[in-house]
Amino acid sequence: MKIAIASGKGGTGKTTLATNLSAFLSESEKVVLADLDVEEPNSGLFLKGDLVLEEVRYKMIPKWNEDTCTLSGKCREVCNFNAIVQLGPRILVLPELCHSCYACSELCPSSSLPMTPQRMGVLKEYKINDNLTFVESRLDIGQEQAVPLIMQTNDFIDLNFDNTTIKLFDSPPGASCPVIEVTKDVDKVILITEPTPFGLHDLIIIVETMRELKKDFGVVINRYGVGNDDVIDYCNREGIDIIAKISNDRHIAELYSGGDLIYDKVPAVRDELERVKSYIFSEGEGM
């Protein structure tokens, strides 16, 4: 089973939910949590364990072979991303613009642009306890494309964990390409928001995105008690499940700030996680 935790707006408690939920579920199930917020991976601050694997991850970029190049100009012509320029007798590849489509490489008449690996980030695997594994991918500073690293991390999880393990994905914030990459193959999506105008506005965008992707999803309200009832009214009107409500509590914010898990210290949070667990194991109704 694959579950993604997402939020339109950043800072609504996505990582708090992902880390606490994975630790809570691991009391009774085998769980792997993958932090796919590769630009700003934070789950690892809350889950401490032994590093069992560390791998550099690469994306494929064409590399110019000066000796065989006939300067046909084909590479420049076929690149839709303007990632290749020709400066007189020299070809220059701009790795940041390259989307690894292979067109220049495979259409080059003299095969002078072989695809070669270029480092984009690091994947690490930690054993937190007998039931809980944590996988984190971290994009190198200066790398602009998150999607290739997310795709590789997804493949890594598919390859290394079988169907008896619950797979949780901590998604990046927002609703654009990286989020779609994380959520497009999961069984259910848990959306977390706060009951404020910003929270509602960004919730609507991610809800519409999930409907576009035809996903089964439910909503967790964090910092319940602040703001107003508009998020609840919206969910009721749209027939969206409100799975759980985590109360606004300065104590929770303080625990979080120091990198502590919360559910084992605040009983009310454990009760809410119990509800999230029932949602995960419920039969999907489809949205």
Binding site: T15, E39, E40, N42, L45, I141, G142, Y256, S257, G258, G259
Partner: peptide, 17 residues
């Protein structure tokens, strides 16, 4: 920035950029 471990962590990363 906000004074949480995540906040400090993200501040350091974005500063590198």
């Amino acid at each position: 920035a906000e004074p949480s471990l995540s906040g400090l962590h993200d501040l350091k990363r974005v500063n590198e950029l």
